[in-house]
Design a binder for these strands. Structure first.
Length: 412
DNA sequence: TGTCCACTGGAAGGGAGGGCTT
DNA sequence: AAGCCCTCCCTTCCAGTGGACA
């Protein structure tokens, strides 16, 4: 009889003991090389246990420099201690990449505070002030200290302005039987420039900068995780060093290093090797690039696809550093070919900025004197990924285009 | 030194879509 | 059903800009 198709893999020996050690959300027992940052947070947040209001804080640092993990680590201990001392502490972690409007932020926190019998707050429909009102009532009902962590706060400010931060930093003047503290986490050191002076001074009462990890520090982190998550003696010479060096060369991102090591181990597992070696890391590196980019390419909205397609098409024809105007002309032609109404040049300019933020293109502003000021655009998709076929082969593009046409026709 | 180009990017607002309240 | 509210995607308008060139 045929064996079950899962049996072969299930029975296979793996180099992993605990895969979770490589999760981004994994909370290790100790945080190497972040003692100073932990201390700074603890010194401030201890006020929550003394009946005072902790200062609002802003944590800065490049991605993967430990901001989020340090905050979680400190907060989980704070919550435990609060419970022990009978000083209730509540914490809310909001990722402002997804939750990026005033309404959604307030709705999210208030919903986390809902009890049985509370009316659910819809994800749209209520006036924001009403949601804010509900939040204040619920916070006061619970009492204690409420710590609101706004991860990627720069994204929230870019999308929704600083109005929400004004409301949140103002909460303590409205709250009667509870207190509130904001911790903002940002990748962008200069994001407070986009804040009004009142919000800025209230929010950044204490700033903390997380410096990128160096290769040696990343190495320590990887060694710790390998001890927890992998079988003994499963890592070959130079593997951890290579992972650390690759991640350190990309602005010291510890998450990237963990991903690299995890995928390297998977590769060794797949090949049935007992030992992970540097070639596995190289394989992991290219897979990581591929895995990061292709889903983004596939899920781009139609017009962004067409813009990127136009840039790539120019590059295939040997044209690099093309201007916004050139992109727009190629893009308009592409639209014509698939009978889609092109967007305006102004919109294309914004789409170029969005593609730049996504890291799919490199755009920089240049002035050519009488030739005018414009962007100089190049694709930034790693080599080895065939953008044009990923974008144009996909039936999705055709489907998207006809959907667009249908929507247009039904409007006319 | 002023002009001019080809844009940039902020601001305001339209309109469709999803949802709540009365 | 009508009146609101919020979000998203987009357009329109326009002041501002860096630097080559006359």
């Amino acid at each position: 009889m045929e064996r079950n198709i899962f049996e072969k893999i299930l029975g296979q020996e793996s180099l992993f003991i605990d895969r979770r050690a490589f999760d981004h959300a994994f909370e290790p027992d100790k945080l190497p090389h972040r003692g100073g940052e932990v201390d700074a947070l603890v010194r401030n947040l201890v006020d929550a246990l003394n009946g005072h209001i902790p200062s609002n804080m802003l944590l800065y640092g490049v991605p993967g420099s430990g901001k989020t993990v340090v905050t979680r680590y400190v907060l989980s201990q704070l919550l435990d201690k609060g419970e022990e001392l009978g000083e209730p502490v509540f914490s809310y972690e909001i990722n402002c990449r997804n939750i990026d409007t005033k309404y959604r932020v307030v709705q999210n926190i208030a919903s986390q505070l809902s009890q049985r019998g509370d009316a659910p707050i819809p994800f749209t429909g209520w006036p924001t002030d009403r949601v804010l009102d509900t939040l204040v009532k619920r916070m006061d009902r619970e009492g204690g200290v409420h710590i609101i962590v706004l991860d990627e706060i720069d994204n929230l400010v870019a999308r929704a302005g600083d109005g929400i931060l004004y409301n949140l930093t103002n909460l303590n003047t409205i709250l009667k039987s509870s207190r509130c503290c904001i911790i903002g986490i940002s990748n962008d050191l200069h994001f407070t420039q986009h804040l009004g002076p009142r919000v800025s001074s209230r929010l950044s009462q204490e700033d903390l900068v997380f410096h990128p990890y160096g290769a040696a520090q990343i190495q320590d982190i990887l060694e710790d995780r390998a001890k927890t998550g992998l079988r003994q003696n499963s890592i070959g010479n130079g593997v951890i060093e290579l992972c650390s060096a690759l991640a350190a060369s990309e602005h010291g991102d510890a998450r990237r290093a963990l991903d690299l090591l995890r995928i390297s181990v998977q590769k060794a597992d797949q090949e049935g090797h007992e030992l992970v070696s540097p070639p596995h890391v190289r394989l992991a590196q290219s897979q990581l690039e591929y895995d990061q980019v292709t889903p983004v390419l596939r899920t781009l909205p139609l017009h962004q696809k067409l813009v990127l397609f136009s840039i790539k098409l120019n590059e295939e024809n040997g044209l690099r550093n093309i201007s916004t105007g050139e992109v727009f002309r190629t893009y308009s032609d592409a639209c014509l070919k698939i009978s889609v109404e092109p967007l305006t040049p102004r919109r294309i300019s914004s789409l170029l900025n969005e593609l730049d933020t996504l890291g799919l293109i490199m755009a920089r502003n240049v002035s050519k004197g009488r030739g005018g000021r414009s962007k100089q655009v190049n694709s930034a998709v790693p080599r080895g990924i065939d953008v044009i076929s990923t974008l144009s082969d996909s039936e999705a593009l055709v489907a998207q285009a006809s959907e667009e046409k249908y929507a247009l026709q039904s409007r006319l």
